[in-house]
């Protein structure tokens, strides 16, 4: 369990360092007025990230070190389940994004809602259907009928 977070953190800081090195290189190519801030800020981030990388590799973390003013992920679910659920949520979101690109938002919303409720949340057919219908009705009423927003067509519909 400890190993996963350990290596993940290392990868994250390494990635941050790579990005900052790249932006310093880009910044060097620009005239000084455009490059000044990117170079300075990137260098500072680079230094801080390498410090943190060093900490995460060689120093044991105490509770004080990880105590941030921010939201914390729940820890009462076991790691494997948590990871699986995280990945599946991201896949659902990605699928929704794909749906919006393919079919356009107005069509993607009911498709996503219905499939999610039916196959992910394992709700009954009727509940899934009703929920989708009610929400889609609300969406259609507010955005399309009332506000007359023209959503871009999906890539599939644009082919005709």
């Amino acid at each position: 369990m400890k190993e996963i977070s350990f290596s993940g953190k290392t990868i994250m800081y390494a990635a941050i360092m790579a990005v900052t090195v790249y932006s310093v290189i880009l910044g060097m190519r620009w005239p000084i007025r455009a490059g000044l801030f990117p170079i300075i800020v990137s260098s500072v981030v680079l230094i801080l990230a390498s410090i943190e990388l060093g900490f995460s590799l060689f120093k044991k973390e105490s509770a004080d070190d990880t105590d941030r003013i921010d939201f914390k992920l729940s820890t009462d679910v076991d790691k494997a389940t948590a990871n699986r659920k995280t990945v599946s949520t991201l896949l659902w979101l990605g699928g929704f994004l794909f749906g919006v690109i393919l079919f356009g938002l107005p069509a993607a919303i009911p498709l996503f809602l219905f499939f999610y409720l039916k196959f992910e949340s394992k709700e009954g057919w009727i509940f899934s259907f009703m929920m989708t219908f009610v929400f889609w009705g609300f969406f259609y009423f507010l955005f399309i009928w009332l506000l007359k927003i023209q959503f871009p067509e999906g890539a599939l519909l644009g082919l005709t």
Partner: peptide
């Protein structure tokens, strides 16, 4: 029985969706 009903609903719903999209082709 319940399942059949639900399927009919789904088909009906998908065809509604199709009808909604029709004007785009007109």
């Amino acid at each position: 029985m319940k399942k059949l009903f639900a399927r009919v609903l789904t088909v009906g719903y998908l065809s509604l969706l199709f009808i909604f999209c029709l004007p785009l082709f007109a």
